[in-house]
Simulated assay, not measured.
Amino acid sequence: MPVWAESLLLLVLAVTLALIVKTFLVQAFFIPSGSMEPGLVKNDRILVQKVSYWGSGTPQRGDVVVFDDPGDWLTPAEDTAPSNLLSKALSRIGLLPSGGHLVKRVIGVAGDTITCCDAQGRIKVDGVPLDSSDFIKDSGACQAPMIGCSWKAGPVPPGHVFVLGDHRDDSADSSYHLCRGSTPGCDPDDAYVPVSLITGKVFALVWPADRFRWERRPSVFADLDAAIKAREEDTTP
């Protein structure tokens, strides 16, 4: 086989492999804002795995997920994409991090009711307090988002999740999109993210290299899951 033909074949195989990996397994993204500080900083490069959500797999409380804009969630600064043709092409096949997405942490899943806040400033999920102090940026009066310390959301509709940014004072997340008071034309469902829009779960911070780490679900969410399950069993006839 001539050198040019062999080179072309290898290029086609590389692009095909990259597309398969991006579509079904792993995809690279960059953090578009400071809404996930302190753990993830603007312009960090992350890897998202899709295997966990194959088939009947669904997001769990505590997962950091990447998802498409449910509708007017992205700010102009966050809604960025590669500007030149080469970068666009490489991004489409998974060889460059993608833009135009959101990154948040799942707090509530279908059926959950989320309230803010208890006497210690903690968000409650189905009545169980969630101590977020180990992974959120200090938010002052309570471990609450930028809309304040008194609100309620849910029950989360089937096939949806309720998400918050770890930088609670600077994250236009599910709480920010809640209908408050008599807001004209507000759609209550806008506060929840359809699971069908979720690309996958963040599993690694890969750049900058000196901050490389595996992304793990905080252990406090396992305690939360157990407490909610115990409450459900206690109320079951």
Rank of each mutant, 00 (worst) to 15 (best):
R216G: 01
H167F: 09
F24A: 04
H101Q: 05
Y192W: 08
V64L: 09
Q49S: 13
D190A: 15
S139D: 12
A81M: 05
I147F: 09
F24R: 07
G127W: 08
S174N: 06
G99R: 08
F203H: 09
I123R: 00
H101C: 02
T23Q: 11
D134Q: 15
A191T: 04
A230M: 11
A141S: 11
E6K: 13
M146F: 09
W151V: 03
A209E: 07
A172D: 02
M36K: 00
D68C: 14
V202I: 15
D170P: 02
N84C: 10
W4T: 06
V106W: 01
T80A: 05
S175N: 12
W4P: 04
R216Q: 09
E215K: 00
R231E: 11
N43Y: 11
I20T: 14
D126E: 07
P97V: 14
C179H: 09
Y53M: 03
V202T: 04
C116T: 10
V3E: 04
V109C: 04
G181S: 08
P32F: 01
T183W: 08
R105G: 02
D223Q: 15
L85R: 06
R61Q: 14
F162C: 07
F24M: 04
A191L: 06
P158E: 14
S133H: 15
R61C: 04
G71A: 12
G39L: 11
L17T: 10
L13Q: 03
D223S: 14
L86P: 03
C117E: 07
L8M: 08
V125Q: 06
T235N: 13
L178D: 01
L13M: 03
L224R: 04
P188W: 13
W4I: 06
D72K: 14
F29M: 02
D138T: 15
S52Q: 11
H167A: 13
T58I: 07
V64P: 00
V15E: 00
S150Q: 11
V21E: 10
K50I: 07
V3D: 09
I107D: 01
P32N: 01
P184Y: 13
V161W: 00
P155T: 08
R211P: 04
E232S: 15
Y53E: 05
D72V: 11
Q49G: 07
D234Y: 08
S182L: 13
K201W: 03
V103L: 09
K42V: 10
G140A: 08
Y192F: 12
S219G: 10
V161G: 01
Q120F: 13
D68H: 15
V156P: 00
F203T: 01
R180G: 12
W4M: 05
D190M: 11
D187G: 12
E215Y: 00
N84P: 05
N43G: 05
P59K: 02
A77S: 05
A204E: 05
S175K: 00
P158Q: 08
V51N: 07
D134R: 14
A119V: 07
P32R: 00
A89Y: 15
V12L: 06
G148P: 03
P184F: 13
L90Y: 11
D187F: 15
F135C: 13
L96C: 14
S87T: 05
L13T: 08
V156C: 02
E215I: 10
R217N: 05
R45S: 03
W151Q: 03
A226C: 09
Q143I: 02
A172T: 05
C117V: 10
